[in-house]
Nucleic acid binder design. Structure first.
Lengths: 141, 141
DNA sequence: GCACTCTTGCAACAATGTTGCAAATAATTT
DNA sequence: AAATTATTTGCAACATTGTTGCAAGAGTGC
């Protein structure tokens, strides 16, 4: 199966041992194209995994650069897969995130770059996050 | 006192009754210039107010447009005062937010406007949030 | 000052996140 | 392929954060 290979590839590339939990969570990310919150994952994974495992797995994936986190206004961080080129720790995650107010989905707009901005004198920018909310392609019909 | 007048003005303008809790919380916002998280407020307000009161007060202020919320990557929403012209429900909050990785402060860069961006076909933008993290003016010395 | 409305605090609860530790599983070595 | 080692998982217990109903208290308008 295609997904299964990808899962193993990602885990191996990041020197992570291949376990059931990591497999399952990666599959979820590969299947749906949207971002997932912690509770999304808990629900979709069925009753199979302990809550703590999900926390720790997400934590590990974050550290390795497998996923990135997307802050949201409703206090529920979401996570999405990183593209290939940002694995290995340094993290190039300069695309816009879109949250649909209709269906609630969060997606990465990989093709929309975050524009440069000029900060006031004295401020040093290290990372920029851009969060657009509105109506997504699927709901806007 | 200057602050006290401002507090009452804001509350009256939004048809909110003037109570101790609302006074105190507004003062906190007027004093420090940074954004405050829920727990910041609880701590700074001393032992005087119930947790629930803080939640409800923030909720009320949000609805009235007295404050706006700033999502952050660490799962702790922060709140900051709105400028005068965005009271009354419709909310013009189009400035950039800055989070300092050194001191942890979050501030509104009122002078830095959020740039326009072009979304892919089909997407409808309703609100844009821009979150810059790095080193702030005070820490960058 | 009095009646009325809104706000507060308390209690109880639900949801979310964290930590230590022993058992289970995966990777490594022989 | 079995044994050793390192890592991961699940459980339990706990801490923190957020929510709701309700009675008591405080603010507002008359």
């Amino acid at each position: 199966m295609e997904t299964e290979k990808k899962v193993e590839e990602i885990l191996k590339k990041n020197h992570l041992s291949i376990t059931g939990g990591r497999r399952k969570i990666l599959e979820l990310f590969l299947q749906g194209d949207g971002a997932l919150s912690h509770s999304d994952i808990e629900k979709k994974a069925g009753e199979k995994f302990d809550r703590v495992t999900v926390y720790r797995t997400l934590q590990t994936f974050l550290e390795k650069g497998v996923i990135h986190s997307i802050p949201t206004a409703d206090n529920s961080i979401r996570y999405a897969l990183c593209k290939d080129d940002c694995s290995g720790g340094h993290h190039r995650d300069d695309h816009v995130h879109f949250i649909c107010n209709s269906c609630g989905n969060t997606v990465c707009l990989e093709d929309v770059a975050v524009p440069e901005i000029k900060l006031p004198r004295g401020y040093l920018s290290e990372q920029v996050e851009m969060l657009v909310s509105g109506v997504c392609k699927s709901c806007n019909k």
